[in-house]
Design a protein around this nucleic acid. Structure first.
Lengths: 258, 258
DNA sequence: GCAGCGCGTTCCGCTGACCGGAACTCTTCG
DNA sequence: CGAAGAGTTCCGGTCAGCGGAACGCGCTGC
């Protein structure tokens, strides 16, 4: 788990350490389990957990502690993600209705994609992505779009480290990836052919707010029935629609600078 | 703002106070503004904010601080909300495609509804609801469903306090509301006719995980074209579908108790 | 120009919030 | 019945955190 770790001497550090002890599909963790994962002394941890329950960061259940619903609500107040989400949903829906395959919205965070939402009907392809989950940049269509439009220091950082392989098709050599990234930056569309999971293919396009790429969307389907190239234009159009709407909206506010 | 307030003498309390200083549509707040809202001494607050930026609860921008993207991610790990969301989305989508009006998913939190998601196409009715936002229980279809299925202490608590009026149609007298709640509990469907916002009508149905009502869904449309009664059956069917899927899923895990 | 204001930042000595080892209870096994 | 593991409580020591005060900067208006 390559999670950044926190200063375990401060209260806030401990709290964040606890929150990070939960992985994407843990639901309830016991005190003992949390002690193991966080390395925080049992007595101390017990008090911290009690405090966290008090402020509703955690919920107490019979079996232990789980992340509180309050946290969800706070997360939804995060402005950037929220407005992106609100603006995008209608476009994503439209894409989904038209193409009948799973649609993703993702942003760049550190060296990963984080998925803000995922819309797929009942018959959706079983992609490894989860809402709020992470995937590496080099082997997903959204990741490649984001990386292609990020500044070059990130490219170097990603490509200089050894790249994990997920399937026989995962590209792990910097050279070919670099070439592909250049093409993606030029064309404004990225593809993925079973590079992150077997049987899954993707198309993705960047969402621009002004000239900066702030997110990307993709359509994902099973390789036997889905031809990504056939939908590149639709995906790009939707991404542009979102971008235009975002720009219009943010022009109304006093523009926050990054 | 009836926000619960926190112990401002502890670090965690201060952190929570800061997070709560952001309302649903604030994006960037300056140090000075936060000082005013939180009443925390400037020097102290400055340090706390710096620490929060360090652990990525906040992002620093040119103009001040905004809630960090990290918070969004943590929020998405909250198990109950997440699994509810993941399971529900396909059903909500299906409803939306069939009915072509805005679909909501909401849960009970304290004395409010909290909306987990909202799916509506481009032509969606302008409901006052926002993803992650709150609405009172007595004047929304989802709220009434949740209240009707909550234990009686909550009913008393809500109905004994003065109920805010939003439109001429908002019901503010305990008697009629109580009668309606009983009917809703019996029938498993609630309606709302311009009680929370003018021109907006709703149908809602409860989602059951086992025998407990854990959430509710609704379809919302403008009163001039949308007949809520006509879609009660669809909404109820979708809610039941979600419930069944939830139950199947949670049977796989070691059942966490509340 | 300069006084006044509001904002962000830094400093520093005091103190009580926080720390965590240890001791205790209560199950759950073998 | 003893051992092992989980959760909870206690308490004296101390350092993380506190916040008042002072500083620098960019406004605005007299």
């Amino acid at each position: 788990m390559p999670d950044r770790d926190f200063d375990r001497t401060t209260v806030l550090g401990k709290v964040m350490t606890v929150l990070h002890a939960y992985s994407i599909d843990d639901s309830v963790l016991s005190l003992a389990e949390l002690t193991r994962r966080t390395q925080i002394p049992k007595g101390t941890l017990h008090r911290v957990l009690t405090d966290m329950v008090e402020v509703r960061l955690l919920d107490r259940t019979g079996a232990g502690y789980r992340l509180g619903g309050h946290l969800f609500e706070l997360g939804m107040r995060a402005s950037v993600e929220r407005s992106l989400l609100e603006v995008s949903i209608p476009f994503l829906e439209e894409l989904n209705v038209r193409i009948h395959e799973t649609v993703h919205l993702g942003i760049l965070d550190g060296t990963d994609v984080v998925y803000l939402t995922k819309i797929g009907g009942h018959r959706q392809a079983s992609a490894p992505s989860r809402i709020g989950g992470r995937m590496p940049l080099h082997c997903t269509a959204i990741g490649k779009v984001l990386l292609a439009n990020a500044d070059s220091s990130l490219r170097e950082k990603i490509l200089s480290a050894p790249l994990p392989r997920y399937t026989p098709h995962t590209m792990i050599l910097p050279g070919p990836i670099l070439a592909q990234l250049d093409r993606i930056a030029a064309e404004g569309v990225a593809f993925e052919y079973e590079e992150s999971a077997a049987g899954i293919v993707c198309v993705a396009a960047p969402i621009r707010d002004g000239d900066r790429v702030v997110a990307a969307i993709s359509v994902t389907g099973p390789s036997h029935r889905f031809r990504p190239e056939a939908h590149a234009a639709s995906v790009r159009a939707a991404a542009e629609g979102i971008g235009v709407t975002l720009a219009r909206r943010s022009r109304l506010l006093t523009e926050p600078r990054s």
